[in-house]
Nucleic acid binder design. Structure first.
Lengths: 352, 352
DNA sequence: TGCTAGCAGTCTCGGCCAGAGAGTGCTAAC
DNA sequence: GTTAGCACTCTCTGGCCGAGACTGCTAGCA
């Protein structure tokens, strides 16, 4: 029995675990190293500070704690945050007023997924007071609703409308000798040919058709295929939305100015964020990446709490918040989780 | 003659002006208050520090300078920056390598104005090491190239393609009793009816047509009119692009952490930025707003350098950079100006 | 009259020191 | 195994001092 519970807490005795939890909670609140005296009065354990000191020394030995200097209290390491997060109760809890804000937000009907997501980032950052991010649903799985060529004076635009309301466009430089009529003809065929396909499939179809068609239409189709390929390639790479980024520079978050800059820099590199959020998409319901656990160099001092959302169980995208290592994981996890649930319901409703 | 040049320099004697210029330049470089000794050696004037001290005392009296404390040097006030900027030579000068970067950037052909602008913000922030902003061309003056209704399962999307390649879309909740065919029929009429119009004009046309048409098409047209009105209303409000915002938290820029947060907050409020950039649109070639001169509360510690761009003389939009009061106005102005010129040429080429 | 050299005065800044306070680790006793 | 007690260490604050940076003023000079 004793060993069982020790294993359940990750090799730590019940008491060590209790002390560690109390310490992390306290540190998250104050940002100051925590001492044994303080812990003795707040941890709820009926032991003396001296006993706690012994435990703290052991926890430091185990790598859960650090001391800035000998006469300071202890601060949590990455390991301690990880431990803390892993033992958090999975039931989200949000204050009534906040829960209400979430519900109200999703009551308004919004046009398309992107628009809903933009609002969602603002909602999340208002709730958590951290910066928030959202990875929009990948176009890879969306299906084409319409596809046509549009002449704009000198240039020609390929327009692709997806079933979720998103629109992608590319300039295509059609061959010099293609007439207005050629374009019309090809354009008419596109929608019927590609409707219901993913972009990837449509690209292949375009290439195949080009081979089986006479010039000059074949040349136009090849260009269309190229443009579709470009849309396909960029399909995931384009949409990371941010909200409440001023929170990063705010008081409660990062101590060092340099860290603030690093985080802003990381946020500007979309590809890195994408990688991060896509990882989170595969670990429902909520994934927490603490410090170095996230894959972005230069974000060692930041943690990310993220959750996938989607209609009917499939992950469409990811939302999350980004904050300091000593972020308030309990509220952040609750907020992200609840918002992800409601968001899933909202996109489901949109799709039906 | 003496009075003339005094007036030209804004009531300051030649020598005061020279000293003030040297001081501002120095302060911009170092961020440290500047003393009389330093000025004596760098201003190029052949006078002693004592003389300079007399002049500095007078300049302080006039409101151009402040002293953090008695034994510090002097720092410029807003007035001094304004004076400095007003006397800057209007010929832009950029280092060869930077000029090359600008030219190279605009050699690549890009799909639409938004895409070019997004790249332009990155270019500007790389050149200046400040955050950059761009106000995209208003749709008010763009003209509709195509307009149609697209059914997406349960909902219907109104799609409007503009001649500059931009695409706007709105969900329209068509009347329950409208059939697939009704929609098709209305949709076919839209493009031919609205081509070449601005959104505003198209909205009026739709409303007029609705009145002159039989049900059920009239009901659909009314909805389309509503959606067009919404696009028209949002036409200007939607597009402020940002680039290089990490620079705001960087070393060279703002001293106080609180200021950094304020600026980020201001950048998140699009409406404020819009107002700012629209003002700048009317003062070619380059406008400089120093501290309180910009209309955004909470940005007293920031300056904005902005320039309008556009094809054929008309202002389409605005680009600019935002930095600290002690921003390097000379480079910033040069960079913004040259980029605006090239950008104007690029959109002109796009349109032709 | 305007400029300048010299000088006294003022203020910040860094270093140093001492005392207070916080927190620890160790030891010895329960 | 727990705890009280204690010596120890280290930071932090405030006070103090001297160095350094500038200034403003005054008096003398062209």
């Amino acid at each position: 029995m004793a060993t069982t519970s020790a294993r359940a807490s990750g090799q730590l005795s019940e008491r060590k675990a209790a002390i560690l939890r109390a310490l992390v909670r306290q540190y998250i609140r104050t940002g100051e190293p925590v001492g044994s005296e303080m812990l003795a009065s707040t941890s709820g354990l009926r032991v003396s500070p001296a006993t706690i000191r012994n435990e703290l020394a052991a926890l430091e030995e185990l790598g859960y704690l650090t001391q800035p200097h000998t006469s300071a209290g202890r601060a949590p390491t990455h390991l301690a945050y990880r431990f803390f997060v892993d033992l958090l109760p999975s039931r989200p809890h949000l204050r009534g007023s906040e829960r209400l804000a979430v519900v109200q937000f999703f009551e308004e009907a919004l046009a398309d997924v992107d628009e809903i997501l933009r609002g969602t980032t603002l909602l999340l950052s208002r709730l958590t007071r951290y910066a928030s991010l959202a990875l929009a649903p990948s176009l890879k799985e969306s299906v084409i609703a319409r596809c046509e060529l549009i002449g704009l004076g000198s240039s020609t635009l390929l327009l692709v409308v997806f079933d979720n309301g998103r629109v992608e466009k590319r300039l295509v430089d059609v061959p010099e000798d293609a007439t207005e009529e050629d374009l019309e003809r090809v354009s008419r065929s596109l929608s019927s040919a590609f409707r219901g396909m993913t972009v990837g499939a449509a690209k292949q179809e375009a290439d195949r058709n080009a081979a089986a068609t006479r010039e000059p239409d074949a040349a136009v189709l090849r260009k269309v295929g190229g443009a579709l390929g470009s849309i396909d390639a960029a399909a995931e790479a384009e949409h990371v939305l941010l909200g409440g980024v001023a929170n990063i520079a705010g008081e409660g978050a990062f101590d060092r100015r340099e860290t603030v800059r690093e985080v802003y820099e990381a946020l500007e590199r979309e590809s890195a964020l994408l990688h991060l959020l896509r990882e989170a998409a595969s670990t429902p319901p909520v994934s927490v990446m603490i410090g170095a656990e996230n894959s972005i160099p230069g974000m060692l001092e930041a943690s990310v709490v993220a959750a996938p959302f989607g209609a009917g169980g499939g992950a469409m995208g990811t939302i999350g918040v980004i904050g300091p290592l000593r972020m308030d994981y309990e509220s952040a996890i609750s907020a992200v989780r609840i918002v992800a649930e409601r968001l899933s319901a909202a996109v489901e409703a949109l799709r039906s």
